[in-house]
Amino acid sequence: MNPIIETRQLKKEFRVRQSKERQPQIIEAVKGIDLVVRAGEIFGFLGPNGAGKTTTLRMLATLIPPSSGQATIAGYDLAREAKQIRSCIGYVSQAGGADVTATGRENLMLQAQLHGLSRRDAEQHTNALLDVLELEALADRLVKTYSGGQRRRLDLALGMVHRPRLLFLDEPTTGLDPQSRARLWDEVRRLRADGTTIFLTTHYLEEADALADRLGIMDDGLIVAEGTPESLKQQIAGDVITFGVKSSNGTRQKLEALFCQQPYVREVHPADNQIQLYVERGEENLPALLHLLDAAGLAVQRVALTRPSLDDVFLRKTGRSLREEHA
């Protein structure tokens, strides 16, 4: 498949002036990324807040210029052909960007017409979208009266009213209840089925797992892993066993030492009050491990056996868990 986005060493630095220091500090938000997004796929950027996902998206959507590096979007050069790129893309920011003092319909009509649609086409697209997103009943109400989920559906509609080839969605479901989230996922999948390429960012593991065809895992301005959710998880051979332990006494150290000696244990990741093991054939080896613990007289609080998740991938690549942030 053809790449619709290609970046080479794309970089963004911000100058931040701190009140006390005279010297402005340079913060590297995006530290040079090479990325390929193929036409027709849902590409997801997964990473914690502050990883540089939004900054990358805003560069690609022509909102902020890169500090260095190149990007080609829909065949156009980001530095020289921003206007042509804008004709091919839609962008939904975290804030959304709906005018709350106007009605949903007015918002959509303005956006469609500024994208160059005739009044008649704009009306037709607007009505079709209001129907699909079930916003018809609200269409002529001011946006400030919408609920969070309704508002987010309108934001999505604003990004796609001109039927772009490529749609950027920045944290599309943050703050939504599970029902609204599932609904938005359906919309995104429907768009892909119609041939739209979707580039979204998220810090939700489930969202990345459920929605993205391919993922880039981003941390601290760099892409640390890239691939389909399945292939990423397969990089972690075997299963994950998590033991809950008390961190007070020396039990943890003894457990660590014991686990490291077992041939079927591939990796040991101790954390505050738990130890995580990547184990071959977890179902078979878990009883053996429990026997060992018994024999050694070591007690654990709880035990869990799971398939590797994207969080395990993130943990493996960065040494930190994505879940810690929200805990």
């Binding site: 909102l63 804030a95 960007g97 709906a98 956006q111 500024l114 994208h115």
Partner: peptide, 22 residues
């Protein structure tokens, strides 16, 4: 400034419309 803070301006900036016209 309301438009700026609500993200309306960014939304307008992603359209191919002339910036001077906007």
């Amino acid at each position: 400034l309301d438009d700026l803070h609500d993200g309306v301006i960014e939304r307008l900036r992603v359209t191919p419309a002339s910036r001077l016209a906007l």
